[in-house]
């Protein structure tokens, strides 16, 4: 017992004097030898990691990482990081900055040819055919044909004509992907979704595959249509008109949403095939060939 009390007193005494006299620093245990952290500006693995972010479709992260590298490294920033940043921005539908930067990159430097390819793709995607033709003319014919085929999905004739110019192995692969894309893009019919939603609010959303949106649409429309009818039966015409006007927004908004969801469903269903086609014809865009 005495031993316990002594230990407690000694402990309290040490704690009380700790503020007055700093305790000697404990001997540090030698840390295990850590792997050397490379300077990011000179680390060749950084480019691969940017490519990984693009491949994972983490475009905002790729953009933020590339901006960080450009701020950190200044003039030592590699052109390939700029290219990765521009691809990420184009994917994020932020075209103005990316196009300006790509034009600079395409003028000269180690990434000029890849920048021209990305630029031609960006213009083709935006249906700016004149600009795409000007940039594509500076590409090797096979690469120009690959860009044209990858961006001509909506036009079967143009796809067939351009994909015929790429090497046979790629051509067959691309045609197979195109067949799967055509099937996937008709997963839902927007017109059917719109008509269903017009007939019964929420039915279009059920057809599209969103029970939650359907429930909200149905509940809101039931509420406002019911209120309008009830108020009109009670001869409260002004209030009924107000309720009907607000309800019309939910009704028409619900129809627009049903059509929009069907289009989005088709787009997301077909997107893997679009990505696969780009991967085959334009591997630069997926970040696979960034090094």
């Amino acid at each position: 017992m005495r031993r316990v009390i002594a230990v407690l007193v000694l402990g309290l005494g040490r704690a009380g004097t700790a503020g007055a006299q700093p305790a000697p620093e404990p001997a540090r245990v030698a840390a295990p030898a850590a792997a050397p952290v490379g300077e990011p500006c000179a680390d060749p693995a950084v480019t691969g990691r940017l490519g990984d972010l693009l491949r994972a479709r983490r475009f905002a992260d790729a953009h933020h990482a590339a901006v960080g590298l450009r701020v950190l490294c200044g003039a030592a920033a590699a052109d390939v990081w700029r290219l990765a940043d521009d691809i990420a921005l184009l994917r994020l539908e932020d075209r103005a900055w990316a196009l300006r930067d790509l034009h600079e990159l395409a003028t000269n430097g180690p990434e000029a040819e890849r920048a021209r390819l990305v630029l031609a793709w960006a213009y083709s995607v935006a249906h700016d055919d004149q600009a795409a033709a000007v940039v594509s003319a500076q590409l090797p014919p096979i690469r120009a044909a690959a860009v044209a085929a990858a961006t001509a999905l909506e036009d079967r004739g143009r796809f067939d004509a351009t994909v015929a110019l790429v090497p046979p192995g790629l051509r067959d692969h691309a045609r197979g992907i195109y067949g799967r894309w055509e099937h996937a893009r008709h997963t839902r019919r927007p017109a059917v979704a719109g008509v269903l939603s017009a007939l019964l609010p929420g039915a279009g959303q059920v057809y599209d595959g969103s029970i939650q949106a359907a429930a909200v649409t149905f509940a809101l429309n039931a509420l406002f249509i019911g209120a309008t009818v009830e108020l009109a039966r009670d001869h409260e015409y002004w209030t009924a008109t107000a309720a009907g006007t607000v309800g019309s927004f939910f009704y028409i908004g619900g129809v627009i949403n049903a059509v929009d969801l069907a289009r989005r469903r088709n787009q997301t269903a077909a997107q893997p095939e679009v990505d696969a086609l780009e991967e085959v014809l334009l591997p630069e865009l997926s970040g696979r060939q960034l090094h």
């Binding site: 479709r57 983490r58 475009f59 905002a60 992260d61 959303q205 599209d208 595959g209 969103s210 939650q212 949106a213 909200v216 649409t217 927004f249 939910f250 028409i252 908004g253 619900g254 627009i256 949403n257 929009d260 969801l261 989005r264 469903r265 997301t268």
Partner: peptide, 25 residues
């Protein structure tokens, strides 16, 4: 804008990988 705004609120209800791209932000 009001019609499309309502449609967007419903899209928010439906938000899933079937209809939109996700982003960690």
């Amino acid at each position: 804008a009001w019609y499309q705004g309502i449609a967007r609120l419903l899209l928010e209800q439906a938000s899933s990988e079937k209809f939109a791209r996700s982003i960690q932000l």
